[in-house]
């Protein structure tokens, strides 16, 4: 049954399958490390997907499309930031609102783009390196966004671990009252984190509509944003474990798609639900991690 599946192709395609979720999850990781729970990842992703698609179609450049996706989703994230940071609304409810709003907004924006085909994103040319057996296909045969996503993960890791800015961000997330007392602008830092999270979610969404599918269809994220949220919990808020979680999830997705294609005697619907079931199982096994201390709590400076 698995004999027909080439392992190097499998690994390469699981990286592609995981990239949208990886991008969205790394953004959300930064947001949550700053002490904000933004449940609107799904809404920001789908907004990014449609913005990226529209911009790419109209400019003919997928790169400009990705920039547009990041900008559009970050703009939507700023609505969330304004509501939760200035107007002190409940983060859970506002995140849900963001998702419902984003789904509506995206299908409205995208209705005249259904059925079009996005300009394709070429693979990065590594020359001879991509000729290396197995490793060549796995490491040097991807489009630029796969490498960008890996760079963002590395960048976030280095930022949180080695920079002063990262330390301040973590302080704000662990104890916003103490960070405020030390003179840090909690609200401004959280605004920046939320915007970054939105931009990453937008890139992830655009990766779906520009590379993975590559078309625009309503509701095309199909829960990817929620899975990204689950992966942040799975990773215990650590960047490298997040990468592992996202690729693990990509593996499950690719495997079930391959099984569907190979015509196993299991109905397609049961295979399609497997990524979600796996996510639940993973959440059950991995809910031991410690969340940032101020996660989800509203910050209001009394003076």
């Amino acid at each position: 049954m698995f004999g027909s599946i080439d392992p190097s192709l499998l690994v390469a395609s699981l990286m592609v399958a995981a990239t949208p979720i990886l991008l969205a999850a790394i953004g959300e990781l930064v947001v949550e490390r700053a002490g904000v729970l933004n449940l609107g990842v799904e809404g920001m992703m789908i907004t990014g997907a449609v913005c990226g698609f529209i911009v790419a179609i109209n400019t003919g450049s997928p790169y400009v499309g990705f920039a547009g996706a990041a900008a559009g989703a970050a703009l939507l994230a700023l609505v969330f930031a304004a509501l939760t940071q200035w107007l002190l609304s409940n983060q859970v409810a506002t995140g849900l609102a963001l998702t419902l709003f984003g789904l509506g907004l995206s299908s409205l924006l995208g209705q005249s783009y259904v059925g079009m085909r996005a300009p394709s994103l070429p693979r990065v040319d590594f020359g001879v390196l991509s000729e290396i057996p197995f490793l060549g296909r796995v490491l040097f045969g991807h489009d630029p966004m796969v490498y960008v996503s890996l760079l963002i993960v590395a960048g976030v890791w280095a930022f949180l671990r080695y920079t002063r800015g990262g330390l301040v961000l973590r302080a704000v997330g662990e104890n916003h009252a103490a960070a405020h007392a030390l003179g840090y602008n909690v609200v401004a830092i959280r605004f920046a984190a939320i915007a970054f999270g939105g931009a990453c979610a937008g890139l992830g969404g655009a990766y779906l509509s520009l590379v993975r599918v590559p078309q625009w269809t309503e509701g095309m994220t199909a829960g990817a944003g929620w899975i990204a949220l689950a992966i942040v919990v799975f990773a215990s808020w650590r960047p490298w474990r997040l990468l592992l979680g996202a690729y693990l999830f990509g593996g499950v997705t690719v495997l079930q798609l391959n099984l569907q294609a190979s015509g196993v005697a299991i109905p397609v619907e049961y295979l399609s639900m497997s990524p979600y079931v796996v996510t639940i199982l993973v959440l059950v096994v991995m809910s031991a991690g410690r969340a940032p201390g101020s996660l989800g709590k509203t910050f209001h400076a009394s003076t």
């Binding site: 409810a93 849900l96 609102a97 419902l100 709003f101 984003g102 789904l103 509506g104 907004l105 299908s107 409205l108 209705q111 309503e218």
Partner: peptide
């Protein structure tokens, strides 16, 4: 979709 957006806006 405009109605869906309208409902999201309300929230």
């Amino acid at each position: 979709a405009a109605i869906q957006l309208f409902q999201g806006m309300l929230l």
